[in-house]
Simulated scan of single mutants.
Amino acid sequence: MEEELKICTLGKFELKSNDVNITEGIKLESKRWELFQYLVTNKHRSISQEEIISVLGLDENSDPVGSLSSLVYRLRNTLKEAIGSQAGDYIRRSGNAYTFNVEKSFWLDIDEFEKACELTNKAIEDNSDDWQESFEQILNLYQGDYLEEAHLCDWVWNARNYYSNQLVSTFNKLAEHLTHQNKYEELWDYYTKVNQLIGFDEDLMFGMIETLLRMGKVGFAHQKLEELIEFFEENDLIIPLKIKVLKSKFPKNNSDNPGLVLEEIKQSLEEEKAYICPPETFTDIFRLEIRRSSRESPPRFLSFFRIDGAYDETILEKVGNNLFEMITKQLRSGDIICRWNNKQIIALLTGLDESEIEKVMKRLYNSFYYLYNIPEEIELKKYFSEIEGKSKK
């Protein structure tokens, strides 16, 4: 009796029949298995002989077409021996093209993985708690990178990135869902599990640190942040702006010499860019400016940018990141800027009159739409107000 073929691709590549691992002890780096993996990866299209010959590097052989035919023959025989007389039908030929026969009975982990992602996303969108079972299935199925042993094959990288991004994207939605419910302990457990599966991911690390802060574990969060910054520095990578902003939320170590501390602050302020600070610091600065406004002093303005639209939080956050980075680069060193949340940015501008502020706001607004491809459904709203003055649209 012919058994259903079970194909595992997330992590170690395995073929199973009736719970028997038929690839155990076989050299999986051979061309026949690379052929099988390529056909499975591209199972929804017919693949020409020329494409397969090029991908497998058979074009260097004296008879590339004959070499491919021989590979197909040996692969079909291997499947027949393990599964049954009709197993060779998994590899179908039509003219000068080959395809994986999706009409045959088979189980494929990436198909189940995608179904579980869809169920999880649907439950979260419905604000339901029915996501647990499907998300646990995602974690059980994702045993590692897609075809992790085929790391030398260029063609595998697109599929590998696709499935890892799908995992991260689904988890980011779940993380937002649990954050809204203040379930930080549960969220931290999932962060740990997903991080073990994915390895280094900037967004995951950032989320882990923010979750630790919400849990009140400041010391542990600071340790994780330092590890993240060290990774960027050791690999000569530019530290992302959001990581720098996150770092500013942590208190700095006091020094016995206040002069040294003040000198460090002075040197940091000499950089030709706006001062970035978290909402707590910005609030303190605003309180100070309110006090100063009672005395005779130059005008000071608060400028507000808000992103509105019917997009999910992931898209809005990305748009917000672009806006924040652009404003930070274009403001002056004496200005103060704060990323209040994913959708709102506030800046304190000094030394300008009302007409000059209007020009600055218009320039930032136009630059944003010029530099980035913003979906029509997303709208950038802007306004400013003089401290202790009236709001100006």
Results as ranks from 00 to 15, higher is better:
217 K>Y: 04
63 D>Y: 10
245 V>D: 04
343 K>G: 02
8 C>W: 14
261 V>K: 12
83 I>L: 11
326 M>F: 08
271 E>G: 15
235 N>E: 08
345 I>T: 02
300 R>N: 09
246 L>A: 02
91 I>L: 15
371 L>C: 14
131 W>I: 03
9 T>Y: 05
224 K>D: 00
340 W>K: 06
291 R>Q: 11
126 D>L: 09
337 I>Y: 00
359 K>A: 12
223 Q>C: 02
378 I>T: 02
55 V>W: 10
265 I>H: 10
207 G>T: 01
320 G>M: 03
357 I>L: 14
62 S>E: 14
18 N>S: 15
190 Y>A: 00
176 E>F: 15
252 K>Q: 08
50 E>Q: 14
91 I>P: 11
100 F>E: 11
302 L>H: 04
347 A>P: 00
75 L>P: 01
137 Q>A: 10
389 G>V: 05
338 C>A: 02
315 I>G: 05
289 E>P: 01
148 E>L: 14
56 L>Q: 03
1 M>Q: 12
217 K>H: 04
255 S>A: 03
207 G>Q: 02
12 K>F: 11
124 I>R: 01
67 S>P: 01
164 S>V: 11
337 I>C: 02
130 D>C: 13
370 Y>G: 14
164 S>F: 04
78 T>E: 11
274 A>R: 06
378 I>M: 07
160 R>C: 03
244 K>P: 06
291 R>Y: 10
268 S>I: 03
80 K>F: 05
384 F>G: 09
295 R>K: 13
151 H>N: 11
95 G>N: 10
122 K>T: 04
350 T>V: 12
39 L>P: 03
198 I>P: 01
88 G>K: 15
124 I>S: 02
249 K>Y: 06
123 A>T: 02
57 G>V: 04
308 D>H: 07
344 Q>S: 07
148 E>M: 11
3 E>H: 15
335 D>M: 02
46 S>F: 10
244 K>V: 06
184 Y>S: 01
84 G>H: 09
273 K>L: 12
375 P>Q: 00
391 S>T: 15
25 G>I: 05
346 I>K: 01
295 R>Y: 15
291 R>K: 11
357 I>Y: 09
150 A>H: 12
317 E>F: 09
121 N>R: 13
22 I>C: 12
207 G>P: 00
3 E>F: 15
295 R>T: 09
368 F>K: 03
161 N>H: 11
196 Q>D: 08
136 E>R: 10
122 K>F: 04
341 N>W: 07
123 A>K: 00
320 G>T: 03
141 L>M: 05
243 I>Y: 02
52 I>E: 10
153 C>Y: 12
357 I>C: 14
55 V>M: 10
106 F>I: 05
43 K>W: 07
324 F>K: 04
188 W>Y: 12
187 L>P: 01
32 R>Y: 12
202 E>S: 08
259 G>A: 08
179 T>N: 06
18 N>P: 12
92 R>M: 13
278 P>H: 00
195 N>T: 11
272 E>K: 14
263 E>Q: 13
4 E>T: 15
